[in-house]
Amino acid sequence: MTHYVELDVRPILAAGGEPFGRIMETVTSLGPDEGLRLLAPFRPVPLFAALGSKGFTHQDREIGGGDWEVLFTPAFAPAGTAGEMSAARWPGPLMHLDCRGLAPPEPMVKVLGAAEAMQQGEVMEVLLDREPSFLFPQLAERGHEWQGGFDPDGVSYRLLVRIGPAS
């Protein structure tokens, strides 16, 4: 079970300060089984990549009043419940691609190209016109994981790709 060190950057930001240095300081001081519970007045998207590259997955939720709580968990630490683990393994997407209206195989080219620019553990969300049958073996070959399905409207196929270790 990961123990989370809490850091609330809302007072720092309210006072006009810059919390980034403080966040990195806290992360550096974390023990091997420790994660970071960050409280912020907005969704701190740039941090997802910055801490992702340090081996942290993240799980974010809005806690009301526009404030956000983000749990940064070391990627190989034993997480809590299965739900927490899955949410931590599949963090909110950093990259969004809309490949609807593109003729095959352009969506495949775009997805594989975008994946090369991302870090391990990051997630990309892709909208497509149909299930990308020929893309799946390419993703598997590169060690990426994916989940996907048609939206309730049955028109758009929504694919999440979780980037695997660089090969």
Partner: peptide, 20 residues
Amino acid sequence: FMTWLECYGPVLGRAPTPRV
């Protein structure tokens, strides 16, 4: 299409490739 996928699939996104 099959030829393109077989030959250029492994390097898509990693090197400039011809289109189908």
